[in-house]
C-alpha cells in the first residue's frame, strides 16, 4: 500500500506539483481545526460553567443548567461568600504577598542579572551555576525545614514576611533578566565606565531603560506563582485576616461550605474573584507570557 501511495505521490508531485500539496495541507488543517476546537471547548467550558454557577440562585446541574436562564440569575452568591470570607481583605493579602515577591524579584533580580551579564568579578560562574541548580530543588523537601525555621525559630508565622520569604527572588526571572542584559552590547557599558559612571548609575540610567520589556515579562512570570500558591501561605497563616484569597477560599471549601444554603454558588463566586485577576492579566499580556515561559523552560 505504501509503495503505490509513494508512486502516486511522486507522479502527483511531478504533474500538478503545488496543487496536490496545497489540497492535502488544507484537509489536514480542517482536521486539526476540529481537533483544536474540541480541545478549546474542554479547556474553556469549566471557566464558563464557573461563571454561570456563581450566578445561579439554586444550583441547576442538569444539561439545561449550563445555559443562562434569566429566572435563575442572582448576585446573592457573591454577597454570601463575602459574608463568610472577606473577599476584599483576601484580595488585599494576595496582593501584598504577590507584590512583595514581585518587588524583591525585580529589585534584586535586576542587580544580579546585570552583574551576571555585564560585570566581571570573581565567583560569577558560581553564582550562575547556583541560579541553574536552584531551579531543580524540589519544594517538598524544603517544606518541613522552612516551616521549622520561619514559623518556629523566627516566629514569622502569621506574618507577610514569612509568607514572602521562601519565594522572594524568582530564579526564572533572574534568568530572564540575565538573558536580556546579555543581548546589550558590552561596549556600551565599557564606554560608560571609561566616562567615569559608577556601576549603579550605569545600571539605573543605561541598562534598565533598555530592558523595560524584560521587567514586564518578569513581573508577569512572577505574578502567577504567589497569586496561585496555596500550600505555603496555608501553612504559615492561621489568622484569617492575613490569609491570601486562595487560602481563605480553600478553608471555606473544606470547612464552612457544608453549612451554607447554596454552597456551590458561593464557592464558584469566590473562585471567579480569585481567578479573574490572573486570567485578565494573562489575556491582556498573553504574548509576553507565552514567549518567556517557553523560552526560559526550554533553555533552563
Amino acid at each position: 500500500m505504501t509503495a503505490t501511495n509513494a508512486r502516486a505521490g511522486r507522479t502527483r508531485a511531478k504533474t500538478a506539483d503545488g496543487e496536490g500539496a496545497v489540497e492535502k495541507r488544507r484537509n489536514l488543517s480542517v482536521g486539526s481545526f476540529v481537533l483544536l476546537a474540541i480541545g478549546a471547548f474542554v479547556f474553556l467550558f469549566p471557566f464558563y460553567y464557573m461563571l454561570i454557577g456563581s450566578l445561579q440562585t439554586t444550583p441547576d446541574t442538569s444539561v439545561g443548567g449550563a445555559f443562562p436562564s434569566p429566572a435563575n440569575i442572582t448576585g446573592e452568591n457573591y454577597v454570601n461568600i463575602n459574608g463568610s470570607i472577606n473577599l476584599f481583605k483576601g484580595l488585599l493579602n494576595s496582593g501584598i504577598f504577590t507584590g512583595g515577591v514581585i518587588l524583591a524579584t525585580v529589585v534584586f533580580g535586576l542587580l544580579v542579572g546585570y552583574a551576571l551579564a555585564q560585570m566581571q568579578f570573581r565567583g560569577r560562574g558560581v553564582v550562575f551555576a547556583m541560579m541553574l541548580l536552584v531551579q531543580m530543588i524540589p519544594f517538598q523537601l524544603l517544606l518541613i525545614p522552612l516551616y521549622v525555621m520561619i514559623v518556629r525559630n523566627y516566629g514569622l508565622g502569621d506574618n507577610y514576611l514569612g509568607m514572602i520569604l521562601p519565594f522572594a527572588i524568582n530564579s526564572t526571572a533572574v534568568f530572564v533578566f540575565r538573558q536580556y542584559f546579555m543581548q546589550l552590547p558590552s561596549t556600551l557599558f565599557e564606554a560608560a565606565r571609561i566616562d567615569g559612571a559608577s556601576e549603579f548609575r550605569i545600571l539605573w540610567q543605561i541598562a534598565i531603560p533598555l530592558v523595560r520589556p524584560a521587567i514586564v515579562t518578569a513581573i508577569l512570570l512572577t505574578f502567577i506563582g504567589p497569586w496561585n500558591e496555596f500550600l505555603w501561605p496555608f501553612l504559615v497563616t492561621k489568622d484569617q485576616s492575613l490569609q491570601p484569597l486562595a487560602v481563605s477560599l480553600a478553608n471555606y471549601i473544606s470547612n464552612i461550605a457544608a453549612t451554607a444554603s447554596n454552597p456551590f454558588g458561593a464557592i464558584l463566586a469566590g473562585a471567579c474573584v480569585l481567578a479573574a485577576p490572573a486570567v485578565a492579566l494573562f489575556i491582556f499580556f498573553q504574548r509576553q507570557f507565552i514567549s518567556t515561559n517557553i523560552g526560559s523552560s526550554v533553555k533552563g
Binding site: F47, Y49, G53, F264, A278, F282
Partner: peptide, 14 residues
C-alpha cells in the same frame, strides 16, 4: 493556557 495560569483552588471549585 488559561487553566495553567489560574489558581488551582479556583478551578477545583468548579
Amino acid at each position: 493556557y488559561v487553566p495553567y495560569v489560574t489558581a488551582s483552588v479556583a478551578v477545583i471549585g468548579v
